[in-house]
Design a protein around this nucleic acid. Structure first.
Lengths: 188, 188
DNA sequence: TTCATTATTTGCCAAATGACAAATTAATCG
DNA sequence: CGATTAATTTGTCATTTGGCAAATAATGAA
């Protein structure tokens, strides 16, 4: 819970009273490895802060391949923003890669916090923009890299993730096949 | 100018008076093909709405290759968000791919509009989030696609751009070499 | 532990892409 | 128009990656 508060405070100021409000609203939940936080076809109605564990956002392309869009690990928010913001059915899944502990906020929670805490929207907007910007900046360079470079850069940027994410999922994130990744990994 | 107002109105309501304020602040500028709107090493201090033309965001990787991160065409905002928001020197360029007509806002303009128009921040936040989300959703699937598919999807999504963007830049956006793209293009 | 299941590695070959240089075509400017 | 420069195409070959199937290793449940 403290991790959440610290995270929020990085983006704006909150009084102790406001902090207590946030704590009151955050619901602790767990997800077992493989379970879904949010599913294609449904409208996302929750936002999660990850206290522990790794989630991934994934979808199926028109050939039926399962593709990992990205991983999200502890001390980050996870939400299907497209679906949550526009209240439209999602086309992707958010799935637990490992067992997870989450702090979950419903739409009502968010509306209430927004109405009560003057800076809440500004803080959330900053977090949203930073989160999206990070994703763009992370994915964008990969297009120009070959498979080996992608893997090595992934290791550099997310050393904590490498050993917690099965190779098949990592391969689908890096945009290469499982066997290629296996060979690349052997070489280093 | 009307295009800008229409664009803004898609994200929130503005009174006629507020619209006039926006018009008052927007400065018309032009950029010749090849000129920069924003440069690596500098702190971005402007936001542009593109009335006409195409810009691209690009940078140099550690091998010295010039890489196009993405294109932005008319009826969209362009800004180096990383640099503008955090007031840190940028690592990328925003360059005119064609001659452009822009409506430019300075930091002062934005601060003033933010102070005067009650919903301004909310509108801009929505635009920012949508812009970033679009980028993620556009780039992300490309990782899992081969070069031919990337090119064809680009044509589908941006038919207006294909004939205005030189092949070399398009190749650097798609993450393939110029000669490969030339061959792919011939086949179709 | 042992079996069953899942994850990873490996072999083999085909296909896609890159690298580099030369040739061709298009664009620009006097 | 002609000359110069820039943009694109093409040829050749090396390298990377994919596809598929089989082998091996790791994991989890009984």
């Amino acid at each position: 819970m403290d991790a959440l508060i610290n995270y929020l405070l990085r983006f704006g100021y909150l009084t102790q009273q406001q902090i207590d409000l946030v704590k009151l609203r955050a619901k602790e939940t767990t997800l077992k490895k493989g379970e879904y936080f949010s599913e294609a076809g449904h409208i996302a109605r929750q936002i999660a802060f990850i206290s522990e564990g790794v989630l991934r956002v994934c979808y199926y392309n028109n050939k039926g391949d399962e593709i990992t869009r990205y991983f999200i690990d502890e001390d980050n928010f996870a939400v299907d923003l497209n679906s949550y913001n526009n209240k439209i059915p999602s086309s992707e899944y958010i799935q637990a890669v490992t067992d997870c502990r989450l702090l979950v906020f419903s739409r009502d929670d968010m509306a209430d916090l927004s109405a009560t805490i003057i800076d809440w929207d500004a803080i959330l907007n900053k977090i949203t923009a930073k989160g999206l910007l990070d994703k763009v900046n992370r994915i964008s360079p990969m297009l120009a890299e070959d498979a080996t470079t992608r893997y090595h850069h992934f290791l550099e940027k997310f050393p904590r993730l490498a050993n917690r994410v099965p190779l098949s999922l990592l391969a689908s994130y890096l945009g290469i096949t499982q066997s290629s990744l296996s060979r690349i990994r052997k070489k280093s």
